[in-house]
């Protein structure tokens, strides 16, 4: 990538963060990760299935020499559960980073922003680097930043919906006012959605289902890599103003014309 993404002092050359869920196999996941060029992947923290062998086997399929592990608190509906899960993730993992989720509703999976802000305060005080999954509300984004979040991660659309960027204006406002990186998290369906997020100025995009649920996950991962790269370049290049009417691209003088004869 042309310019690196820096979060809490850690530098990433890739601006694409991907998940590890919903893949048909660990091998497909690994191939998708490689094709995506990602340097950070999310994982969930769950009770070990005591009836099955191979606890922690997921990590054997992630090349941690160049991929950073970001544990999440997915599935937590209270600040207390999210904090507890974050601490377990820190113990099981290799870092003090957390993708903080506090979910408010099972059907929409929208965040409970009040509990999210409270949990961010608690975890920042406990020494965590907190990356909260939030809604596309600029005021909540500011409060999360004030609470010490290392980045804010507003949704583009509901988790797993594939609807693309639903409120481009809000995301742009969040980015313009944020003093920390803005990662658009959730809602991406296909490559153009990721490109749109990046063109709006997002510092990165996080996705899981769009890649894992594609018919060919490694191929979609490659598409996402290209889209995030293209979107970033377009943002840096500075797009033209939108106009309602045409402006000619070719000179309007020196045209070869047939003289009109009178009479």
């Amino acid at each position: 990538m042309v310019d690196p993404l820096v979060i809490a002092g850690r530098t990433f050359t890739s601006r694409l963060v991907v998940g590890t869920g919903k893949y048909s196999s660990h091998a497909v996941m690994k191939a998708a990760h490689e094709a995506s060029g990602t340097e950070m992947v999310t994982v969930a923290v769950r009770r070990v299935d005591l009836a099955a062998k191979g606890a922690g086997a997921l990590l054997e399929w992630i090349d941690t020499s160049h991929i950073f592990i970001l544990p999440n608190t997915a599935g937590c509906y209270t600040a207390d559960d999210a904090v507890r899960t974050a601490r377990l993730g820190r113990e099981a993992g290799l870092s003090n980073w957390v993708k903080l989720e506090v979910i408010g509703d099972q059907e929409t999976l929208f965040p409970d922003t009040e509990a999210l802000i409270a949990a961010t305060h608690t975890l920042v005080k406990d020494g965590f680097v907190v990356l909260p999954y939030t809604n596309d509300d600029p005021i909540v984004a500011r409060k999360l930043e004030d609470a010490g979040a290392a980045a804010v991660m507003p949704l583009g659309a509901p988790i797993g919906s594939g609807l693309g960027i639903q409120n481009a204006n809000n995301l742009q406002i969040i980015k313009e006012r944020a003093g920390v990186p803005v990662i658009v998290d959730a809602g991406v369906g296909t490559a153009s959605d990721a490109a749109v997020a990046m063109e709006l100025g997002a510092d990165g995009v996080l996705m899981n289902t769009a890649i894992a649920g594609a018919s060919d996950p490694p191929l979609m991962a490659a598409a996402m890599k290209a889209a995030v790269f293209a979107g970033r370049l377009a943002f840096l290049a500075g797009r033209i103003e939108r106009r309602r009417y045409a402006t000619a691209s070719s000179p309007t003088s020196g045209l070869v014309t047939t003289a009109r004869r009178s009479g």
């Binding site: 998940g19 590890t20 893949y23 969930a44 923290v45 070990v48 606890a55 999440n72 997915a74 099981a92």
Partner: peptide
């Protein structure tokens, strides 16, 4: 006892 599993 918890471990990492696939997630987004």
């Amino acid at each position: 006892i918890v471990a990492f599993v696939g997630g987004g």
